[in-house]
């Protein structure tokens, strides 16, 4: 049971796609290159087409029309490997699987995979610093909201619901769901959605909101009106829209390589878009591009490193650190005197 195997490889995938297209009338040389470039690595086109066309990999034969036909008699597909089945068996025993399918489907999958062992048991992992108030994935209301959220994203529907915010505020919301975000640290899902109603003028900036699924109650979906649908289709790639919340100026960290700080910081902040360079023998500069909504989170992450990290900019972020330290000094001044 190999993890690193050519059967999951990019070249096998390219060849499989070319063979499928080459079954009847065959494929042209140009199509072979085009499929290779669309699926392959940046330099795959140097190798794969030549191997196929030259016959070194005797899988295609040139016909009278000058096209290349598959030598195979059938449309083949690779059966699932044992490791893939075992991984599926593991996943369907995960506590979150009920968000995606009902009990009937879970039983169906367990039955068809009854002859394979999961790769691990839940107790083999300990997420030791995960927050203790993760979502209740077994809640029927939660599952319903989650499924409606997925449906709304795929079918461009509007979602209406009552919302209980983390701070206890209640409101009624209508939005156009875009994505669902999962945080492993919080063990929580949030709905990322376009705020409604949208302003009709084309230049108005779309507003993206985040809703915790455990705060969504009584959700329903409906067809999007013309203005909302037009706005969503004008947004461009949703992924870049989500990134638009990023601060214009990154946090500039100076890292002194004491207490293995450089290595710790590089891994700790690996989930951010960042640029790092060495500026002298013992100091590195790291620019972290972050979402404004995550500012407080980033701030306390930086504080947790103590004096081995120093924020050198922007001034607004330095101000946040100083504010906390001044408060701390004041507390010591007050309490220390007692």
């Amino acid at each position: 049971m190999e993890f690193f195997s050519e059967i999951y490889g990019c070249y096998y995938k390219i060849v499989s796609e070319i063979l499928k297209r080459a079954e009847k009338e065959g494929v042209s040389k140009q199509e072979i290159f085009s499929i290779t470039e669309s699926i392959g690595f940046a330099e795959s086109a140097v190798t794969v087409p030549d191997k196929l066309i030259s016959g070194e990999w005797h899988l295609l034969e040139k016909n009278e029309a000058g096209k290349y036909k598959s030598v195979l008699k059938n449309t083949v597909s690779q059966p699932l490997a044992l490791i893939q089945k075992r991984w599926l068996k593991t996943v369907i025993n995960d506590s979150r699987i009920g968000l995606f399918m009902d009990e009937e489907s879970i039983t169906e999958l367990n039955n068809v995979l009854s002859d394979v062992e999961p790769l691990w048991n839940g107790s083999d992992f300990n997420y030791y610093d995960r927050f203790g108030n993760g979502d209740d994935f077994a809640s029927e209301e939660y599952r319903k909201s989650f499924r409606l959220g997925m449906e709304a994203i795929r079918s461009n529907l509007i979602m209406d619901f009552k919302y209980n915010s983390a701070k206890g505020r209640k409101s009624v919301k209508s939005c156009l769901p875009l994505k669902i975000e999962y945080s492993s640290k919080n063990d929580r899902f949030r709905l990322i959605a376009l705020r409604l109603p949208v302003k009709s003028d084309a230049d108005s900036k779309p507003i993206v909101d985040y809703y915790r699924f455990d705060g969504i109650k009584g959700a329903s979906v409906r067809e999007a009106d013309e203005a909302a649908a037009a706005k969503k289709s004008s947004l461009g790639p949703i992924d870049s829209l989500i990134r638009k919340n990023s601060c214009e100026e990154p946090v500039r960290l100076l890292i002194s390589n004491r207490r293995n700080a450089l290595e710790r910081a590089m891994l700790h902040f690996a989930n951010y878009d960042k640029d790092t360079r060495q500026i002298d023998e013992n100091t590195w500069e790291c620019l972290i591009y972050y979402d404004k909504m995550m500012e407080t989170e980033l701030l306390i992450e930086i504080l947790s490193f103590g004096p081995v990290l120093r924020v050198a900019g922007p001034d607004s972020f330095i101000g946040l650190i100083r504010e906390r330290l001044k408060k701390q000094a004041e507390i010591f001044g007050t309490f220390g005197a007692h």
Partner: peptide, 12 residues
């Protein structure tokens, strides 16, 4: 994947 994004994801 047309639906999910990860916050705090350590892809490394």
């Amino acid at each position: 994947n047309d639906i999910f994004v990860m916050k705090h994801g350590y892809f490394v």
